[in-house]
């Protein structure tokens, strides 16, 4: 029999170190590959920093110009927020709905599962070609199909009011990832919980709101945050499908930053743009996280609360 007090102290000390050891890969990677470029871009944002030529210190000049003297900044910010408000809830609801559908015990569920997931693995180059084709207003497939029913379809890609809808339609096509995440979460819910509910005679709708939804709230939070970030940074599809047009109606913030950096060669200004967006997203994320205390349900906290009073 060993003495109990000494080893326990050793173990406690070890336990105090353990979490840092577990997260150390990320810390090392962050310091090695992210921190440097990040600081560099923060420094650049205070310079007039052309891609070719000598940088010149301008203090907060870039930020001041962006907030007060650049019409496009506000326009792009507005378009992006509009897109996010439109796209994020739609994306989540549809992904969740599909995940629920494919987790129902119907014949051929695995086929549908693959079907809905497929578009997510198509490379963005091909996605833009396919949708460019389908949505072409004069000779596109969609308007052709609509015309068979006597409907005159809108000019999806050349009408400024419809172009953003076209982007939403094409973006939603790739929601397989999010669906898969919901699906994994749904499948992780222990069967017996439902069995108990069934015995208690709960209706499917009640089951969903009382059991399913609370148990997948961690994944919901994840999808909410990552799809918000994705929406705010949307770039590749816009770049390939509409190039920001028509009439800059899809000139998203991501494209605005990209063009400032690579078309206008203003790296300093683009960095300031990027950092502004960083704080916007950070604020949104922080807000979502704060609110999550009220609606996200973590099992480990439930068990921990009486003893320690919460972990994060």
């Amino acid at each position: 029999m060993r003495e109990t007090s000494a080893p326990r102290r050793v173990r406690d000390r070890r336990r105090a170190w353990a979490p840092y050891l577990f997260i150390s890969p990320w810390i090392i990677g962050f310091v090695a590959f992210t921190l440097g470029p990040l600081l560099f871009s923060a420094v650049m944002s205070f310079f007039d920093w052309p891609v070719i030529g000598t940088p010149r210190f301008v203090g907060i000049g870039n930020y001041a110009k962006m907030l007060t003297g650049d019409e496009q900044f506000w326009r792009s910010l507005g378009i992006t927020l509009k897109f996010a408000v439109f796209f994020v809830p739609l994306n989540i609801v549809v992904a969740l709905l599909l995940a629920l559908l494919i987790s129902r015990p119907v014949k051929g569920a695995s086929v549908f599962r693959a079907l809905f997931y497929l578009p997510a693995v198509v490379s963005s180059v091909a996605v833009s070609v396919i949708w460019g084709w389908i949505l072409n207003s004069e000779y596109g497939l969609l308007n052709y199909l609509l015309s068979l029913f006597g409907i005159q379809g809108p000019r999806w890609l050349s009408d400024p009011t419809w172009a953003i809808v076209a982007i939403v339609i094409a973006s939603l096509w790739g929601l397989g990832t999010m669906m898969l995440i919901f699906y994994t979460a749904l499948k992780s819910i222990p069967r017996d919980i439902y069995e108990d509910a069934l015995i208690a005679g709960a209706s499917p709708v009640r089951q969903f709101f009382a059991i399913t939804l609370p148990l997948i709230t961690p994944s919901l939070l994840f999808n909410l945050i990552t799809s918000t970030i994705g929406a705010m940074q949307q770039l590749s599809l816009v770049l390939l499908l509409t190039k920001g047009g028509p009439l800059k109606s899809t000139h998203f913030y991501g494209l605005y930053v990209y063009q400032n950096a690579f078309k206008h060669f203003k790296l300093g200004y683009a960095s300031a743009n990027a950092w502004f967006m960083f704080f916007v997203i950070l604020a949104l994320t922080a807000l979502l996280f704060k609110s999550s205390a009220a609606w996200v349900f973590y099992e480990n906290e439930v068990a921990a609360k009486p003893r320690k009073g919460g972990s994060s």
């Binding site: 207003s137 000019r155 050349s158 009408d159 400024p160 009011t161 047009g245 028509p246 009439l247």
Partner: peptide, 9 residues
């Protein structure tokens, strides 16, 4: 130019 040639504008 887009304002002139865009079919919806």
């Amino acid at each position: 130019l887009q304002r002139v040639f865009n079919p919806t504008v």
